[in-house]
Design a protein around this nucleic acid. Structure first.
Lengths: 191, 191
DNA sequence: AGCCAAGTGGAGCGAACGTTCCATCCAGAG
DNA sequence: CTCTGGATGGAACGTTCGCTCCACTTGGCT
């Protein structure tokens, strides 16, 4: 049913965008319904588990979307150090284009619900694990040993995550470009 | 008036702790008053600007507290690479001791209110700037050039920030220890 | 044509939200 | 002792929250 998929997808899109900017508690179900041009009852029709189920699904939705962005950015360069710089650059563009309003799509929701809404925390954990996996895979293909590649991926994701926040707060791409430069330097020490 | 100072300080302590764990929207003024064992009217007596003024003050309060922790950790080692490892270690201990519930005291509030409550955003910006300044100062004292020290401080704070989140989500100190190791390696490439 | 399930619209629930108001309390100044 | 102003306790405000319910419309099947 095309209309069904369209409506459901629209709800998820709006939810992940709003929760990215306002967090979990700061986003009302009514606002989601309004901005998605959908009846409030439809939200509960598609997500009978209510706000928690909706938020969990939105985290997974954003996870896939962000992972695709990472894949595309990593694929533009063969050299792992160059790829990391490209990663930082793509993310920086994405932040700037939103007027520094958008950042990591799940961080705000994650921080608010940590230890209080387990299904959301698990979805966040899986998202981070997937993103690290993409980076680690790139490093291994470039000849970096498995354990080192995994550890590097940890730091790459952590650093980008923190730099995103710093860039948003200061409304400047500088934290991202600096992070990209330092990360590529770090990666280069492993070959 | 000792009691007055005590009450005000108690409100700020509770507010910063609650907002760290639940964010801005997720923390009710009534809950703050209850946990601080203070009358609700007292909260508005000390912070006539309401929740926004209270949150702004709480961010500044947490800023000072966290800065002191950074200062202490940095002072334990002379070598800048060792100091960064100590930093990561101290933060990791702090996270673990809270059962992975506490993290950076201002990140959750910052993300939720970005671009929507300017005074809070400014307080967050000043906090990050202060923390970076402490790290940069340490690097300069160790003979690293000013510009390089400042850039490194950017990445150190960003990486620790991101690693904190990863550690909280995965309930493991591993992201912090990996971050510390990589950051010290990065710092060592600058001498 | 008749039917059934998917999806909509809108009213309404109790609870919790931020905030206000004011009577009261109490320590220190005169 | 009285006076006074900072601080408190408690009730109450209008609004919004997440969520439920149900009559209704709609589009694809037999």
């Amino acid at each position: 049913m095309v209309a069904t998929l369209g409506t459901r997808a629209r709800i998820l899109d709006v939810t992940s965008r709003l929760m990215m900017r306002q967090g979990y508690e700061g986003t009302a179900v009514k606002q989601i319904a309004t901005e998605a041009r959908v009846a409030l009852s439809s939200v509960y029709h598609f997500f009978p588990g209510g706000k928690q189920e909706l938020a969990t699904a939105a985290v997974r939705h954003a996870d896939e979307h962000f992972a695709q962005m990472l894949r595309d950015a990593l694929a533009t360069k063969d050299d792992p150090a160059d790829a990391v710089v490209a990663l930082a650059w793509v993310v920086a563009e994405y932040l700037r284009d939103s007027g520094w309003q958008d950042g990591c799509p799940i961080t705000a929701t994650a921080l608010e619900t940590l230890g209080r809404i387990p299904p959301i925390q698990q979805a966040v954990e899986e998202a981070f694990e997937r993103w690290r996996g993409l980076v680690a895979e790139k490093f291994q293909l470039a000849g970096i040993a498995e354990q080192e590649a995994r550890d590097l991926a940890h730091t790459v994701i952590s650093t980008l995550e923190g730099a995103e926040l710093a860039a948003q707060v200061s409304r400047s791409a500088e934290p991202m470009t600096i992070a990209g430069r330092h990360l590529s330097r770090l990666v280069n020490t492993y070959r």
